[in-house]
């Protein structure tokens, strides 16, 4: 020990009621945090970054990765194929964006009345309502989507009603369709929106709403000036928790949407599954990742200029 102190003075610091050698303390911290950090780095952070490299490679004849660095996959994503330009992949990206946006907006429109209704219940009833929202939050997405498949099948009242009204041919099911996808998406993500929003609505200062009304604010103004600023923390968490997974969803669109309603999630799954075109799948993943990060950044900036 005397050698080391001779080489370099030990830096002692006061730390939580003890005097510790700073370097020793950090080594102990590294011993604890090191293994999990290495785990996350090798299995998640590095492969995530490696996707960017794979996206520049090409697919070999047997589905293996051929390391030829080119922008071919990017061009293909933009629609330049063997047979001239066709925007199929861009349209799928756009539709994913649209489905995620519409789902998020519908969830917001449902979640505000829902959370206000819950917040106005007596204490005991509130616990029950919350439990009713938390249970679907934890039920498996495959089970829930399967349930929609059953509910929308031809012999049950919803499809019969739609057939009677002429929306679907008699004896036809309500799936695969856009409506089915939206029903599945909204019912999957509504708890993700409602739970964080409720955390804000619960702490709402109702006096501000009354004050706004006393000053003859219309309904929209009350919402815009008194409710929205107060619920913004919960709303922005809800927006992220809904929009990000909605963009990447592939179970609901796969089961309820069929081939016509393909989203970028399905396309990625297809490339890594049957098509065995990992480089193109990696390029699609990068596109999804960039769209996700961009929307996250947008959501973070929003509160300032509200």
């Amino acid at each position: 020990m005397t050698e080391s102190t001779g080489r370099k003075a030990r830096k002692m610091i006061s730390w939580r009621g003890d005097v510790r050698d700073a370097r020793e303390l950090r080594l102990a911290g590294l011993a604890l945090a090191g293994p999990p950090l290495v785990w996350l780095a090798t299995l998640l952070a590095l492969p995530c970054a490696a996707l960017a490299l794979v996206a520049l490679a090409a697919r070999g004849p047997y589905g293996q990765i051929v390391w030829s660095f080119s922008a071919a996959n990017f061009k293909r994503l933009l629609g330049y194929g063997l047979f001239g330009w066709s925007p199929d992949f861009l349209l799928i990206l756009l539709r994913s964006l649209e489905v995620a946006l519409v789902t998020t907006v519908v969830c917001v429109l449902l979640a505000y009345p829902l959370t206000f209704h819950i917040a106005c219940r007596p204490r005991k009833a509130r616990v029950w309502w919350l439990t009713l929202i938390i249970v679907p939050f934890w039920t498996n997405v495959v089970v829930r989507t399967y349930a929609w498949l059953l509910l929308l099948s031809p012999q049950l009242p919803p499809a019969k009603l739609a057939a009677w009204a002429g929306f679907v041919p008699p004896g036809g099911a309500l799936y695969p369709s856009e409506l089915a996808v939206y029903l599945g998406m909204v019912s999957t993500f509504l708890p993700f929106m409602a739970l964080p929003l409720y955390a804000s609505v619960e702490r709402l200062d109702w006096d501000l709403l009354e004050a706004a009304r006393d000053l003859y604010a219309g309904r929209w103004t009350v919402f815009r000036q008194a409710i929205l600023p107060q619920t913004l923390p919960g709303l922005s968490v809800g927006l992220v928790m809904t929009f990000v997974p909605a963009m990447a969803m592939f179970v609901v669109s796969d089961i309820l949407g069929g081939a016509k309603q393909m989203l970028v999630g399905n396309l990625i799954q297809l490339q890594f599954g049957q098509a065995r075109d990992w480089p193109f799948g990696a390029m699609l993943s990068m596109a999804l990742m960039i769209m996700t990060l961009a929307s996250l950044a947008l959501c973070r900036r929003r509160p300032k200029n509200l």
Binding site: V244, M247, S285
Partner: peptide, 10 residues
Amino acid sequence: VVPDIIMAVS
């Protein structure tokens, strides 16, 4: 933050 399908692919 990372969408789970990208995590799965990684």
